[in-house]
């Protein structure tokens, strides 16, 4: 069992957990992820490792309550334990001195971009961060991101804070101003990553994105997370989760993300109808 030692709500429906997992904390690197199961009937949920504390033996997980399984997860409190946590999975982010690195975090993608920004800074890069969300109330970690960035730009779709617009607008301005960028790392909704990739492709700026497709085992066994990268099919769980953004078939990826939409709605409705006050009563 994996005990939860700390929880906080970063924004409505966005939660942060610190979880005891000493073996994972010992090995975790920026860019890697874990898979957890809340209980016997639960799904295997992949989540990026947002931070790790090797001394305390904990990992930090950030998730958005979007479906039955994540809503169920959100009902866990300090002292509760997750049934299963496995990792660290996937390849670590390739961190070296690229000169200037622009990190782009959209929505919940701000969580996984943070350790990468920090790692890039520690490697001597100038780190420029662009974080964006639909609205100010679901934006989080501005302070944390500012601390590891030499410049922080904030955008919201509704203009409630920061610049009214999209992360790509800021990136476009930066490019137009002649900023020399060694690497762009973007994590967020697939559609955001697609537009970042389309923008940087025009200027030949190397760009890496991190994918979080449907997967089960996380060890290369099920093939559910396959995605076309260039002329090859890759498994996000073992070959990724980070790939060269300019080679990814984003449209195919988006179609596959909708695979279980009907079933997800079914469990969500069930969860809402039967949900108790502590943990989901679906089981």
């Amino acid at each position: 069992m994996y005990k939860i030692t700390f929880t906080s709500e970063l924004a409505p429906s966005v939660k942060l957990f610190k979880v005891e997992a000493p073996l994972i904390a010992r090995k975790a690197q920026p860019g890697q992820f874990i898979i957890l199961r809340t209980d016997e009937s639960g799904e295997r949920i992949p989540l990026t490792i947002a931070d790790f504390d090797r001394k305390a033996g904990t990992i930090t997980l950030i998730f958005q309550e979007v479906g039955a399984s994540t809503i169920d997860l959100g009902k866990f409190n300090v002292g509760d334990a997750l049934l299963d946590v496995v990792g660290p999975l996937g390849k670590a982010t390739h961190i070296e001195n690229f000169g200037t690195v622009v990190v782009v975090g959209g929505g919940i993608g701000i969580a996984p971009i943070f350790p990468i920004a920090r790692g890039m800074k520690e490697a001597g890069n100038e780190v420029i961060s662009i974080i964006g969300a639909r609205s100010s109330n679901i934006l989080f970690w501005e302070k944390e991101m500012a601390e590891v960035s030499s410049e922080l730009h904030v955008t919201t779709d509704d203009g409630s804070t920061g610049r009214h617009g999209l992360v790509t607008h800021v990136l476009q301005d930066m490019i137009d101003a002649g900023k020399k960028i060694g690497l762009v790392v973007a994590i967020g909704p697939v559609i955001m990553m697609k537009f970042v990739a389309e923008l940087t492709r025009k200027y030949n700026i190397p760009t890496v994105v991190s994918l979080n497709p449907v997967m089960i085992d996380g060890t290369g066994m099920c093939g559910g997370c396959r995605v076309a990268v260039g002329n090859e099919n890759k498994f996000a769980c073992v070959d990724g989760p980070e790939f060269d953004a300019h080679k990814i078939d984003f449209d195919g990826l988006m179609a596959r993300q909708r695979f279980y939409k009907a079933q997800e709605k079914e469990t969500l409705d069930r969860c809402k109808n039967e949900g108790g006050d502590h943990k989901c009563q679906c089981r």
Partner: peptide, 22 residues
């Protein structure tokens, strides 16, 4: 994937078990 969903994750008992299968 198909068999793991059904066997290990018990998707044949969805939605009692939460892993879906189509």
């Amino acid at each position: 994937e198909f068999l793991t969903r059904s066997n290990l994750m018990k998707a044949y008992r969805f939605p009692e078990y939460k892993t879906p299968i189509y």
